[in-house]
Each structure stands twice: as C-alpha cells, then as structure tokens.
C-alpha cells in the first residue's frame, strides 16, 4: 500500500505524515526489536535528505536496519562492504571498452541505488572513502568527464566500528560533518533479547516487509518537511544552542553553519513525522544528540569529554 502525500502542512497531510511514520516504525519494529527512537531518527534523517552514520559494534542489527528501511520505503538497496584494498571504481563503477561497438560503456557501480549501506566505512583507504563522500555530497558521479546522476532519494547508511581501530582509517571531522546524523544502536534489553532468541531469523523476516510509501509519496513528504513553519522563537533557540557550542570552554570545535542548517532540517523532519505543523523546541532536542554528537569535539579534560556532550549543551541552554 503506497501512501500518496501531495500537498503539505494541511491538517490531513500532517496526519498522514504522522501515520506513515508510525507505519514505518511498526513495520521495522517487527524486524528490529525495541529500537523505535533509532528507527525514527533514521527515517527523519532520510526525509531531511541527509545521510546516516551508525557507529556500533558488529551484530547489533545495523545491516538489518538499513535493509528494512529500504524495504519499507519501497526503495532499491545495495550493500558495499568496505575493505582496505578497495578502489573508487568498486563503488561508483567504471567505463569498459566494448568490442562489439568499439565504445566505452559506463557500468554503474553499487552506489547507483536508493539506499546504500556502506559497511565498515573506516576499513577503506581515504581515497575510496572520498569517492563515496563526494557522491553523497553531489548526488552524482563524474567519470571520464561524464556525469551520472544518482537516483533520488539517495540515502547512504554508513557503519563504522568504534573499537578494533587497528588497521582502519577513521573518518576525519571534516568528513563526519557530511553525515546528517550519527546514531548508535546498542544492545537490546534483556526481555527483547530473549524474544530475539526465541523468534525467527530476522533476515528471513525482511521478505515479509511491505512498502508503506512509494518514491513520489516520499518526495512529497520531503517537500512538506522543507515547508514546515519555523518560528522566530525556535530559530532563537537553535542559534543559542549553536552559539553555546562555539563559545563554551567545553568544546574545541563547535557546530559549523552546515551543522546548524542540518539541525534545523532534521528537526523539521522530526516535527513532520510527529504531526507538528511547526517545529517545537522538543523536536530540536530530540534530534540534537544525533545531529551534533559527531560534530562536537569536547576539550580534553573538560566535563563534556566525560559525559554526553550533546546533553551538556541541551541542559545548558534555556528554551525560550
């Protein structure tokens, strides 16, 4: 059943967006147990047109999340396992000479897909990484002077393993900034884990997922999110947050202007899928940790380094 969301900001449209988000949550929730906030963040990230970085240990369901998101949204899906011997051509594709026609023909790489799972991105060399990151930024691939547009929507979910850093190339801050959100998945709770153990193979269940929206509906939702009302009060709040990260002694590096923009965009998507006609401060707070967490560099020895820096910011800045 593909929902069709055309116009925006009307009561019915908001209601539909919220329903859709709920449907996405329930569908994926059947496969991934007890990760509703993360599922919603991932969905909001996609709606905001950004890319998602999942940082967690292997086996917590990163791939599953990516696959089920693609399945539920009716999008094509490819997985790229990053390795240290990977070349950019392995990602974007290459031109191959064809004997029959005596011409070069472009063979699209795995990146030509709606949802791309870049697994263990920190295992590849910076050269291969940058091929992916450029494609993420430009939404197109240029090879031999020819430009190939990537499908829309184009959504990259990259994963990296925070531990076992030996032989890896961690993404520098400048590259991290290109991900709209970074989330972790974490271990399931005791009860859920029991359920997980008793239940079917999660991978088998992927086939049961039904798409709840089509590409056109998704595009309409993204338009709706972009046109959500932003009050002056809210912008005051966002600026206060950004100002704090830049001025506070707790941080070496605050939020960039792009970070601030991303924060607003993510908050808009979050507001849309929660049925708010305008962005609430709570919407900003809900996405703040995911949007800002990987862009802030706490000063060594400060309290921010010890605990969750995003939370420190939120608790220090009054809501207007």
């Amino acid at each position: 059943m593909a929902a069709n969301v055309t116009a925006l900001a009307g009561k019915e449209e908001l209601h539909r967006a919220r329903q859709l988000a709920d449907q996405v949550g329930t569908e994926i929730g059947q496969v991934i147990l007890g990760k509703q906030p993360e599922i919603r963040l991932a969905f909001a990230c996609l709606l905001a047109g950004g890319h998602l970085l999942i940082e967690d240990v292997p086996g917590v369901g990163k791939t599953l999340l990516a696959r089920s998101l693609a399945g539920v949204l009716g999008l094509s899906f490819r997985r790229i396992q990053f390795t240290s011997d990977m070349l950019p051509a392995d990602i974007v594709g290459m031109s191959i000479f064809e004997q029959a026609t005596s011409t070069f023909r472009f063979h699209a790489g795995p990146i030509f897909s709606h949802v791309v799972l870049a697994d263990e991105i920190n295992r590849a060399t910076p050269k291969a990484q940058s091929a992916l990151l450029e494609a993420m930024e430009e939404h197109q691939v240029t090879l031999d002077g020819q430009t190939h547009a990537l499908p829309a929507p184009f959504f990259v979910i990259a994963t990296q393993n925070p531990l076992h850093q030996a032989g890896t190339f961690p993404l520098p801050e400048s590259q991290l900034d290109r991900f709209l959100m970074r989330i972790g998945l974490g271990y399931p709770g005791e009860a859920l884990e029991r359920k997980l153990l008793k239940g079917d193979d999660r991978r088998m269940m992927l086939g049961d997922l039904r798409p709840v929206v089509d590409v056109a509906g998704l595009a309409a939702l993204r338009t709706a999110a972009r046109e959500l009302f932003l009050s002056d009060a809210l912008l005051d709040y966002v600026q206060a947050l950004v100002r704090f990260t830049r001025q506070s002694a707790q941080f070496d590096l605050g939020l960039s202007p792009r970070g601030a923009q991303d924060l607003v965009n993510a908050a808009r998507s979050w507001a849309l899928i929660h049925g708010h006609p305008g962005v609430h401060p709570e919407d900003v707070k809900a996405v703040f940790a995911a949007v800002a967490g990987h862009r802030l560099r706490p000063r060594q020895g400060g309290t921010a380094a010890l605990r969750d820096p995003a939370r420190l910011v939120l608790e220090s800045v009054p809501v207007p």
């Binding site: 609430h280 401060p281 608790e315 220090s316 009054p318 809501v319």
Partner: peptide, 8 residues
C-alpha cells in the same frame, strides 16, 4: 528548569 521545553 530553563532548558525544559513546554511539552517536557
């Protein structure tokens, strides 16, 4: 608390 949003 100053940092609490209205809904919170």
């Amino acid at each position: 608390a100053p940092h609490e949003g209205p809904a919170e």
